[in-house]
């Protein structure tokens, strides 16, 4: 008997059609972003709905890179996002390990509090956060953003890391301890190498979240020097017009680090690193 299942050609076509529709739907805004970025200014309104512009230009990219503060915003965002991702992941990894491996008094309480912080709409706490940040004199600084983003991302990142630690058999650490490791050595030499996919995923997630955050950045940053990228995008909206072409070109450039980051961590995201550890 053949194990190959023959589906009807109609079903196969339907399946791929559905997939194509979904992918098209999901990627269309990105296409539109890129399309407007390469459309010459004078054609933006005259050919507003044409799928492919009649002529191309890279002028918008040149203007954005040379004539605007885009590179500043870009650098600010990079600093904020990378620092946030690094700090959050370190703290979340430590907390996630504790939640996964130890029982301690107040554990349930801490988990409950962390969950509660995720329940409120951010809008509700914008004003108090602003007051606090202003009081400690951190307005218009990247530090304020790093602190706020870190604080808000830690709960989710912790649960994410905990689930990765839960997936690593306890036997492995115990075998390590029987082999002569201290708990910390077992963590460093055995658990940590196996958690790399988890660390990669958490880093990527937090980086993206911080990279695209607008609300707090808008509230806490006013000066051009410390604007992050999403806030900077708004500077393309002037009193009398919106510079669509340049705005979209900047948007395309902003996608680059996210893409690079995910390409970089992708190899750590590949599952199956723990296979072979225990019976399987």
């Amino acid at each position: 008997m053949s194990v190959h299942r023959h589906s009807s050609p109609l079903a196969v076509t339907g399946k791929y059609l559905a997939l194509a529709l979904y992918v098209g739907f999901a990627l269309f805004p990105l296409y539109w972003l890129a399309k407007i970025a390469v459309t010459p200014d004078k054609l933006i309104y005259t050919e507003g709905t044409a799928l492919v512009p009649s002529s191309f230009t890279l002028e918008n990219f040149r203007t954005v890179l040379v004539a605007t503060d885009f590179l500043y915003y870009f650098r600010n965002s990079l600093v904020v996002s990378l620092t946030t991702a690094a700090i959050t992941t370190c703290i979340a990894a430590a907390a996630g390990y504790a939640f996964s491996r130890f029982t301690f008094r107040g554990k349930r309480l801490v988990v409950a509090i962390m969950l509660i912080t995720q329940m409120f709409p951010l809008l509700m706490i914008i004003a108090p956060i602003y007051k606090i940040v202003a009081a400690v004199g951190l307005l218009n600084s990247l530090t304020s953003l790093i602190i706020v983003y870190t604080a808000f991302n830690i709960p989710f990142a912790t649960f994410l890391m905990q689930s990765f630690f839960d997936g690593i058999p306890k036997d492995l650490e115990e075998a390590g301890m029987m082999d002569g490791c201290t708990r910390f050595q077992a963590l460093r030499k055995i658990v940590l190498p196996l958690t790399l996919p988890g660390l990669g995923a958490t880093l990527g997630f937090i980086f993206t979240a911080a990279w695209s955050e607008l609300l707090f950045a808008l509230m806490l940053i006013n000066s051009n020097d410390t604007m992050t990228f999403p806030v900077g995008l708004l500077t393309f909206v002037s009193k009398f017009s919106v510079d669509w072409g340049q705005m979209m070109a900047a948007g395309v450039l902003a996608l680059v680090p996210s893409c690079l980051f995910f390409i970089f961590i992708q190899r750590y995201l590949v599952q199956g690193l723990t296979s072979g550890a225990v019976k399987g």
Binding site: P193, A277, V278
Partner: peptide, 14 residues
């Protein structure tokens, strides 16, 4: 100074 063989083997996968 005791060695243990686990039911799951617990080999270090990396």
């Amino acid at each position: 100074d005791m060695a243990m063989v686990f039911q799951s083997y617990a080999l270090y996968p990396h």
